[in-house]
Computed example of a mutant assay.
Amino acid sequence: MLERLELEAFLTLAEELHFGRTADRLGLTTSRISQTIRRLERRIGAALFERNSRKVSLTDVGRQLRDDLRPAYEQIAAGVTAASRGNMVPRVLVVGFSAPWCGNLMVRAAELFRRRYPGSVISVEEIQLMDPLARMRAGVVDLQLTEFPIAEPDITTGPIIFSEPRALMVPSNHPFAQRDSVSMEDVADTTLVTLADASIPRYWMDYYFPRRTPAGRPIPQGPAVMFWQEALVHVSQGVGVSTVAARAEQFHTRPGMAFVPFHDAPPIDYGLMWPTANRNPLLRPFIDTVRELAAAEDVLAPHPSPAHNAE
């Protein structure tokens, strides 16, 4: 189990990528931060950061640990803050995300928002792809960064925050794995792993897991999974292929899998949505914070095509 200092030092350094700024934020010395990180790396048995005289960067193991720990840490911090207020009614906003790269942005926005609006409680949670609207319609989630299109009468859609090119996730021994790119027509020559879509709008499924190519050729439908990890297993074991955002290669690469960019697929637009009836006073300022942070971090910049020969 991680000690509190290890957790806070790791997550802060993962954000700042600078030992001095991390030490300043935590009120500690730089040497204390360095010692804490080295101790954590020894316990894990792998380097979490690459260090040289010019910069600090996360290793693959470090990025995975950050992505696994950050949402849970944010929820714990929000719970502690709410409990410490006793009978006072906190200003709470619950925000959701559908993909790790969306979650990273929402967590950073939540931290910036808390600094700007002391006393606010921002809880960040992952939304499962198999039922992307349930938490919002249940009144639990106030705002969500998710894949568009969304066209529902009770949900308001806001700005597109960033767009991603698409890729086809294939077994590494698949003939497509040796290509520089694929087309939407090529998908008819595969078996497409899809989502169990009982609660997903049909127009959304057709956009991401189509039943026919643009020319009308039928696309063989493979297993319908409930969770994204199941799709990764099916693809890596050669059961089928799946369409993904190109950025997924940074988060989901595993043995037996390759990512091949599409040269003709429409991009994946990630936008904000919220219940039309929502009157939470934190909603609008948080939307502004997300947009500001996204622009400052240039997340709208084109994402490089994946190196699709992953083994």
Rank of each mutant, 00 (worst) to 15 (best):
A196R: 15
R66C: 08
A215C: 09
L129P: 01
R25I: 02
V299H: 12
P261G: 09
V124M: 05
P171M: 14
E6Y: 02
R217F: 00
E297I: 04
L65T: 01
T253K: 06
E111I: 06
D24W: 02
V233I: 15
F113C: 11
M184A: 11
A248N: 12
D180N: 10
A46W: 00
C102D: 13
V225L: 11
S172H: 12
H18C: 15
A9T: 05
T36Q: 06
P214M: 09
L93N: 05
E147Y: 12
E41C: 07
L2R: 04
Q64D: 13
P132G: 04
V182R: 06
E230D: 14
P118V: 03
V233M: 14
I122T: 01
D298E: 10
L93M: 10
A99D: 14
Q75C: 10
A134V: 07
A224N: 07
R91I: 02
P153M: 14
G271Y: 02
R43F: 03
Q178M: 11
E125L: 15
Q128R: 11
L283Q: 10
V187C: 01
Y208D: 00
S181E: 03
R211Q: 05
G45M: 02
H252D: 14
L283V: 01
E16V: 12
E152T: 05
T157F: 03
V225H: 00
E74D: 10
V225K: 09
P214D: 12
P255K: 11
G103T: 08
Y208G: 06
V239K: 09
R166F: 04
F19P: 04
V244K: 03
L93V: 04
Q229H: 15
Q221L: 11
M257R: 00
V107D: 11
M273Y: 08
R166G: 05
G256E: 05
A296H: 10
P214A: 14
L5G: 00
P266N: 08
E230I: 06
D186V: 02
F162S: 09
E147P: 03
